[in-house]
Computed example of a mutant assay.
Amino acid sequence: MIKKIIYLFLFIVSTIVISGLYGIIHNQITYTISSEYFTLFKFIQHHLPEYFTQPARLGAGIVGWNSTWWMGLIIGIILGTVWIWNDILTIKDRFKALGTVCIIAITFGIIGYFISYIQWQPERYYEVINFPSYGEIIDNSLQKMNNPYAFLRAGTVHNFSYLGGIIGLLIGFFQLWKKYSSNLKLIN
């Protein structure tokens, strides 16, 4: 049982690190889409001190880590603890399920990228874009925005990536359940 607890701990640490690195890389890509998404919104939303935002890509990386490490914790706990009391599922099975989560999150982010370019085109909108209220400080910051369409594209990619992570977790869990069920039938 001690060995399983050590594997569980290492698996959870791995999912946290992988998720955090995903967030850092993801935000470097979305920063390229819209720097204003970070400088006028995310830095304020995450209460990032100015010394963490110089250069701004550093701040985007910090926001990426802060926005995703906790998802890795959730994924690690769920995929790591499911059916831990028996020996049917191995650590390798759990990492395969984690790979599924990562692939689906990346795929959804890419889909979000293409959808955002179809959805947010300046030629399609003639009215002013109104954002929901995020609070006075952020609302005032958004008034300085030069390219709201790029901002919306970056936000769309972020939302799709979170959706991909959630769907990936469900599919990864199903993948483990299927492996568990098929191996259980072989044992009986």
Results as ranks from 00 to 15, higher is better:
Lys3Cys: 14
Lys3Asp: 15
Lys4Met: 12
Ile5Gly: 08
Ile6Leu: 15
Leu10Lys: 15
Phe11Ala: 00
Val13Lys: 01
Val13Arg: 05
Ile16Gln: 01
Ile16Cys: 07
Ile16Lys: 00
Ile16Trp: 00
Val17Glu: 04
Ile18Gln: 00
Leu21Ile: 10
Leu21Arg: 02
Tyr22Val: 09
Gly23Gln: 01
Ile24Met: 14
His26Phe: 11
Asn27Met: 05
Asn27Ala: 02
Ile29Met: 09
Thr30Pro: 03
Tyr31Leu: 14
Tyr31His: 14
Ile33Pro: 02
Ser34Val: 06
Ser35Lys: 13
Glu36Ala: 02
Glu36Thr: 00
Tyr37Asp: 05
Tyr37Met: 03
Phe38Trp: 08
Thr39Gly: 05
Leu40Met: 01
Leu40Gln: 03
Leu40Ala: 02
Ile44Lys: 09
His46Thr: 05
Tyr51Val: 09
Thr53Trp: 00
Pro55Met: 14
Arg57Lys: 15
Val63Gly: 00
Gly64Thr: 13
Trp65Lys: 02
Trp65Arg: 04
Met71Asn: 03
Gly72Arg: 00
Leu73Asp: 01
Ile74Pro: 06
Ile75Gln: 02
Gly76Ile: 03
Gly80Arg: 05
Gly80Tyr: 00
Trp83Ile: 08
Ile84Thr: 09
Trp85Tyr: 13
Leu89Thr: 05
Ile91His: 03
Arg94Gln: 10
Lys96Asn: 13
Ala97Glu: 07
Ala97Cys: 06
Gly99Trp: 00
Val101Ser: 01
Cys102Asn: 10
Ile104Val: 07
Ala105Asn: 06
Ile106Phe: 13
Ile106Lys: 05
Phe108Ala: 13
Ile110Met: 00
Ile110Tyr: 02
Ile111Leu: 11
Gly112Arg: 03
Phe114Ser: 05
Ile118Thr: 11
Gln119Ile: 14
Arg124Leu: 15
Arg124Cys: 14
Tyr126Cys: 08
Tyr126Gly: 12
Glu127Ser: 12
Glu127Asp: 13
Val128Met: 13
Asn130Asp: 11
Phe131Trp: 13
Pro132Gly: 04
Ser133Arg: 08
Ser133Lys: 07
Ser133Asn: 10
Tyr134Met: 05
Gly135Ile: 12
Glu136Asp: 07
Ile137Ser: 11
Leu142Trp: 04
Met145Cys: 06
Asn147Thr: 08
Asn147Gln: 07
Pro148Cys: 12
Tyr149Ala: 01
Phe151Thr: 01
Leu152Lys: 11
Gly155His: 03
Asn159Thr: 10
Asn159Leu: 07
Phe160His: 02
Ser161Ala: 12
Ser161Lys: 01
Tyr162Val: 12
Tyr162Arg: 07
Leu163Arg: 08
Leu163Ile: 11
Leu163Tyr: 09
Gly164Ser: 09
Gly165Ile: 02
Ile166Lys: 03
Ile166Phe: 06
Ile167Val: 12
Ile167Asn: 02
Ile171Ser: 11
Lys178Tyr: 12
Tyr180Gly: 04
Tyr180Val: 06
Ser181Lys: 13
Ser182Asp: 13
Leu184Trp: 12
Lys185Asn: 10
Leu186Gln: 13
Ile187Gln: 12
Asn188Asp: 12
